[in-house]
């Protein structure tokens, strides 16, 4: 099968990319320069490559790029920047939720998807929401706390 051109909106910008039939969304995004989307296993075990695909958190290594033509993709880098971080990114940085940082982008994406549908999650709901994101450094406690802090600051921001 030949390669085909697909059009995506990535972090708010229209992008076109030629993809091979077997190429995953992970590979396509990294070719587009989205190096915040991390490759940790290429089979959906670790969650390091999680992105929002039309608002839903997915492991981009499990999605064929060809299927995403016309979709909107948000990666962690699309949520905020060093100068203007997202509330989740700021809470992760402040709360000791970042150690090596390799899982962080996927973790923030899963947390974003959670807060989008449940702005006031319990610890256990947070745990479930990030249970597909492996972290080998933190033991998860400071990550769960950071997500609660971010949820609180978002709620206060909306009031």
């Amino acid at each position: 099968m030949p390669s085909r051109m697909i059009a995506l909106t990535v972090n708010g910008r229209g992008r076109e990319i030629l993809v091979k039939p077997k190429a995953t969304l992970l590979q396509a995004l990294r070719e587009l320069g989205c190096t915040d989307v991390k490759n940790g296993c290429e089979k959906g075990d670790c969650g390091a490559c999680a992105v929002l695909l039309d608002g839903i958190a997915v492991n981009s290594c499990l999605v064929l790029a060809g299927q995403t033509d016309g979709s909107e993709v948000t990666t962690n880098a699309g949520l905020g920047t060093i100068d203007h971080p997202h509330a989740l990114q700021e809470a992760f940085a402040d709360g000791g939720a970042v150690q090596c940082g390799y899982c962080t982008s996927g973790m923030v994406i899963s947390a974003k998807a959670l807060l989008d549908r449940n702005p006031e999650p319990t610890e256990s709901e947070i745990g479930q929401a990030i249970s597909g994101n492996l972290c080998r450094c933190t033991g998860y406690g400071q990550i769960i706390q950071a997500i609660q802090v971010a949820a609180g600051s978002q709620r206060r921001g909306e009031e």
Binding site: D36, P85, A93
Partner: peptide, 21 residues
């Protein structure tokens, strides 16, 4: 003091480049 680590924000926003990047 539990200050924000100097490497934390870059990692949190996905700006830090790792060896595979």
């Amino acid at each position: 003091k539990p200050l924000r680590r100097v490497d934390a924000l870059g990692k949190a926003v996905g700006a830090t480049a790792y060896a595979g990047d």
